[in-house]
Design a protein around this nucleic acid. Sequence first.
DNA 1: TCTGGGGTCCTAGGACCC
DNA 2: TCTGGGGTCCTAGGACCC
Length: 384
Amino acid sequence: MKRIILHMDMDAFYASVEQRDDPSLRGKPVIVGGSEHRGVVATASYEARPFGVHSALPMARALRLCPDAVVVRPRMERYVEVSRQIMEELGNFSPLIEPLSLDEAFIDMSGSEKLFGEPDAMAHKIMKAIRKRTKLSCSVGIGSNKFLAKVASDIDKPGGMTWIPFDDPKAFIAPMPIRKLWGVGPRATEKLEQVGLSRIGEVAAADRALLDSQLGTSLGGHVHRLSHALDDRPVIPGRKRKSVGSETTLEHDVRGLESTMRIMRKQCERVATSLRQKKLLAAGLRVKLRYSETFRVATRQAALPAPCDDSRSMIGAAHKLLDRLDLDEPIRLIGAAAYDLSPRDGQRQLGLFGPTTAEDHSEIEHTIDAIRGRFGDKIDYGSD
DNA sequence: TCTGGGGTCCTAGGACCC
DNA sequence: TCTGGGGTCCTAGGACCC
């Protein structure tokens, strides 16, 4: 059966949510992002983009380009909430929804013409439903596979709909830069350009062996297929997450075990809280540091003594892992991530003889979660 | 210009086992 | 004695995506 894949991409999602929620921001250049010192732009509103402000740009530079911009710190919980509404709306069109991030999803609409009409009509109905539910706009791409749908949604933003022809998609994408190929970033672009390939059509015409020699057989094969407009990856709903992490770039560098652990404890607490919210247990923990002077990232990981969702177990594990890293050079980023996740089901019980085991701590922290849920996060529970 | 935070996937080397 | 080969798992790093 002919596949009909749609890709929905919200327009300037974080910035648009902020402008929707705060009317005083409407019509103004809005930048959602971090601190001017070490932050970057997460999303720039369309009013800010003509100044050259875009995602991943260092904040300091963004503000030099657009000094009148209003800077807003990201409110992730809010975006998560709006994202849920969007995905729920998409669910009314197909059971095969695959979210790629908070603001993007694939929708497999194959065989739904009787219900929703031609693909372009489907796309318009989706855009209308999302606007009605959230007052936000999105762009939609249509193609016969994921890659084409994704390329398409980017062509006419904001608020656009693009349908890459089902009969000759290869000709449609041939003139595009190789950067549009999924999996081709700055490194791979450089490697392909070294052998004179800068357009998708040139990659399609290139020798497979040349691609493999530049990119390795795995990425080489992938890129080769995409350049021929071939992509048989299915739309997979309900993909399980593989890790849950928290990391932060510090305003000021730290060094030494004590200072590093002070931050690391907070990261572990956030990871544990997040695991409990998601009803997951982790069997492994990974710590991550980024060194200021070299910008180098170092990670260490290890299995936890037992699957857990409490910060105490993670803090203990993180401490051991940090022992294996250099803590003498200045550190700018500290992070922790839990992996090897499994669903937590069943009841937990508090031991009779005081809080000693990881299970007990999990139970206590669940109780604290519940209190926080009722009274907010402003309560002081004392230390440790 | 001095480079976020949330993730996923791939690779290469070493341990370990038979 | 001068040393196989394959499979699997784990770890660390790195590219990439939004």
